[in-house]
């Protein structure tokens, strides 16, 4: 069988490994673990908002007993007793100029560097990880009442409303200064 044709390189049998190696440009493992951020998604007066997960240490039921403290601005503000500590309980609607809802909702324990407080939300939507690249810079058209507190926007699809990522430091800095 010496006259049988020698297989050319093109028709040479190869192994899967060899075939894969010829396509090394597409088989290279790409690191898809892009930076992500945990967020707590919730609603205030029907509008979607988020807080960074690192700023929310606990989520409590909305019917957690709270104590009214007189002499404060007329909104639902007081204190809650949480495992031996007293935390302020505030609502954000008036700060971001949204209508009061009086929904029992849920309470988020939000903390920044030095300040910690319970914040009443109307509805908890989700706690999830979102890629950092999904957050966009707030546009100039964002209402001026929200601009100081919204650090980024996340819009899952064109059909859905954009969620404002709130800056807890900005909220807590502004809260004592606002008169209402």
């Amino acid at each position: 069988m010496t006259d049988s044709p020698q297989p050319t390189h093109e028709s040479q049998g190869v192994t899967f490994e060899q075939a894969f190696s010829e396509r090394s440009d597409v088989t290279t493992i790409v690191d898809v673990d892009e930076p992500s951020q945990q967020v707590v998604l919730f609603q205030l007066s029907g509008q979607p908002f988020a807080l960074p997960g690192h700023a929310v240490s606990e989520i409590l039921k909305g019917d957690t007993p709270f104590y009214f403290v007189p002499g404060l601005p007329a909104s639902r503000e007081g204190v809650i007793h949480l495992r031996g500590n007293i935390e302020s309980l505030i609502t954000l609607q008036r700060l971001v100029v949204l209508p009061d809802t009086n929904a029992e909702g849920m309470l988020l324990i939000v903390h920044t560097g030095e300040i910690r407080s319970a914040v009443r939300i109307d509805q908890l939507d989700d706690v999830c990880e979102l890629p950092v690249s999904a957050f966009k810079t707030p546009p100039e058209t964002l209402p001026s009442t929200l601009r100081p507190y919204v650090s980024a926007l996340w819009q899952p699809s064109d059909e859905q409303r954009a969620t404002g990522l709130l800056d807890p430091d900005a909220l807590f800095r502004a809260y004592p200064k606002r008169a209402w």
Binding site: G71, L72, E77, G78, V79, N85, S88, R116, P176
Partner: peptide
């Protein structure tokens, strides 16, 4: 307990 700072800052008294 001391009054929490956010409330202390907003108290009228």
């Amino acid at each position: 307990y001391p009054l929490p700072p956010l409330l202390a800052a907003r108290s009228r008294q």
